[in-house]
């Protein structure tokens, strides 16, 4: 016998007291754990006034850090995007052996600590590493310079574009591309006029997330950059340096730029999700590798 007098019983958890309690619990935690950190960044950034904030941003070392971060993203993001598209094309539009393994390897950087990534790069290009001595005698500088920072950034973001495209392109199948090529379209033409329009939002979504991570990466870049002030300090590393210099206001001023980028990223993410990007379920990419090979 139903205990509720009225027609349709409420769903589980709709009891008004429970509902209010759970909602209050969640909203308080969101305010404390997610909103408060954002607010404290803004408050601390302006704690010594707008003039000090502007001076902190205009400081040559900060400006250099911003420039280095932007240059890194301008190299790493396009290269990574090209890779992501190529990987998704190969994996979803073709059949070959080892597809599942390839998918797992592409996803690998997602599971590896940024510190492990940084240390690993040291053992490739560092003096104690595989190519270190050869690079030194050829006077090619990779570590503690821009190339190292770019490479480490590419490692941590390798899966970002591919993982957005693979589940989507897998769901879309191959019929349209097959029709296009059977009508005589070239591979490039098929990609640009048939595939690309169907994946553009997901592609942009991956690019936005990739850019956000490249600009904000700390651990991996921290190991390979050498933290040379005004030379190899990206914005996140510069924030650390200022913070440890007891220049909290300057550090938070620099941090507010990246917090602003995070907010812009979230807005772009929501806008792109309205276009349908990011909707294909996350778990499908790994487990789904099975169904790709069985196609």
């Amino acid at each position: 016998m139903a205990h509720h007098g009225k027609g349709k019983p409420p769903r589980v958890g709709d009891n008004p007291v429970f509902r209010r309690t759970l909602l209050a619990f969640v909203l308080v935690l969101v305010a404390l754990m997610i909103v408060a950190p954002l607010v404290v960044i803004a408050v601390e950034a302006f704690s010594r006034g707008v003039g000090y904030f502007a001076a902190s941003i205009a400081d040559p070392d900060t400006r250099h850090a911003i420039l280095l971060t932007v240059v890194t993203a301008l190299i790493a993001v396009p290269v990574n995007t090209a890779f992501g598209v190529a990987a998704a094309w190969a994996i979803t539009k073709h059949d070959f052996r080892g597809k599942r393994l390839l998918t797992v390897v592409i996803e690998l950087p997602f599971s590896v600590s940024p510190i492990v990534a940084g240390v690993s790069y040291l053992f490739v290009y560092g003096l104690q590493g595989l190519f270190g001595p050869a690079l030194q005698s050829a006077e090619i500088k990779i570590l503690f310079a821009l190339p190292g920072i770019v490479l480490a950034s590419m490692f941590v973001t390798a899966p970002f574009v591919a993982r957005e495209l693979i589940p989507l392109m897998q769901a879309q199948g191959r019929d349209l591309e097959e029709a296009a090529t059977s009508l005589g379209a070239s591979g490039w033409r098929t990609f640009f006029s048939v595939t690309l329009p169907n994946i553009k939002w997901a592609l942009l979504y991956g690019v936005v997330l990739c850019n956000s991570r490249v600009m904000g990466e700390f651990g991996a870049v921290s190991v390979v950059s050498g933290n040379i002030r005004g030379q190899t300090n990206t914005l996140p590393l510069h924030i650390e340096l200022l913070y440890h210099d007891y220049n909290a206001a300057g550090s938070f001023a620099a941090a507010s730029i990246l917090a602003g980028l995070a907010i812009v990223t979230l807005i772009a993410k929501v806008a792109l999700e309205r276009q349908g990007a990011g909707r294909v379920q996350r778990p499908s990419q790994l487990a789904g590798a099975d169904s790709i090979t069985r196609r």
Partner: peptide, 13 residues
């Protein structure tokens, strides 16, 4: 937000 906010920024905040 925790995915979008760089870890160093989260750390000092």
């Amino acid at each position: 937000l925790p995915f979008a906010l760089p870890t160093a920024v989260a750390g000092i905040a």
